[in-house]
Amino acid sequence: MRKDSRLSRVLHVLIHLEMADQPVTSDKMAEMLSTNPVVVRRTMALLRDRGYVRSSKGHNGGWSLAKPLDEITLLDIHKALGEASVFTIGLTDEHTNCPIEHAVNASLKDVMNEAEKLMLKRFGEITLDLLGAEFKT
């Protein structure tokens, strides 16, 4: 199963934006993340729609922060990216008539829901400025 690393990658980019003295292009971000600039633009547009970043066109254009990092939480970014499950563990649905599968899924679902609730609560308590604090001089 493939990991969803979008949250981690976007946090990485946002901290770089905070440290940049000018807007950063999608091409430059794509180079940093080893991905395609179209993927960067699509992802950054989700953040722009929520008011966390802004884009400027033309010479010296690119992406910059629209809000200070101390006003943005991990939960904000998680939600902006579409609120995918924080776990890549999935429940099986291959044997829908099997009572053992139902029992296993019910137990796993309860535990995963409880853990996700706690994790999202914690995400709401962590502002992005805390993530990049050790890099400030």
Rank of each mutant, 00 (worst) to 15 (best):
T25N: 04
T96N: 14
I100C: 04
T35W: 05
E116R: 11
W63P: 01
H16I: 10
G61K: 06
M1A: 02
A80Q: 01
W63R: 02
F135M: 15
K79M: 13
K67N: 00
Y52T: 00
G124T: 06
F135T: 09
E71I: 00
H59R: 11
R122D: 05
M44L: 07
M44Q: 00
K136D: 12
H16G: 05
C98E: 07
T73A: 11
K109I: 04
A133R: 15
S26I: 03
M32A: 09
R48G: 03
T92M: 09
E31Y: 10
T43L: 03
A66T: 00
D76V: 02
I15S: 07
H16P: 01
L46D: 01
Y52N: 01
K117H: 08
D4Y: 09
E116S: 14
L81G: 07
S5L: 14
G90C: 09
N60P: 09
R9Y: 12
L11S: 01
T25P: 02
G61W: 03
I89Q: 05
V104M: 10
N105V: 08
K28Y: 10
D4T: 14
L14E: 05
T43H: 01
L17T: 06
T35F: 04
T88V: 14
T92S: 13
H59E: 13
L7W: 04
S34C: 09
A30K: 00
S34E: 11
L91Y: 04
S64E: 15
L17G: 00
R41C: 02
V53Y: 00
R2L: 10
S26P: 11
M119W: 05
E71C: 14
A133C: 13
V104L: 14
L91H: 04
D21I: 14
G58T: 12
T137P: 08
S5A: 12
A20E: 08
T73E: 07
K79Y: 13
T96M: 11
V38L: 08
Y52C: 03
A45K: 12
D49K: 12
Q22G: 13
D4E: 12
A133Y: 15
K79F: 10
E101H: 13
K3A: 12
S64T: 15
G62I: 09
D76R: 02
V38W: 08
L108E: 01
L69S: 01
Q22L: 10
N105F: 07
L46W: 03
R9G: 10
V39A: 06
F135V: 07
S107C: 01
P68Y: 03
M19W: 13
E114Q: 14
E125M: 11
T88Q: 09
S8Y: 13
M119L: 14
A133L: 15
S64I: 05
L69G: 01
T127L: 07
W63A: 01
D129C: 10
I126E: 15
P37I: 00
T127G: 02
S55Q: 13
D129K: 05
I126D: 15
L7H: 05
H59N: 13
R48E: 02
L131F: 11
P23R: 12
A45G: 11
T92F: 08
L81A: 08
R41S: 03
L46N: 02
L47D: 00
V13E: 01
H78M: 07
V111L: 03
M32K: 04
K28M: 15
V86D: 08
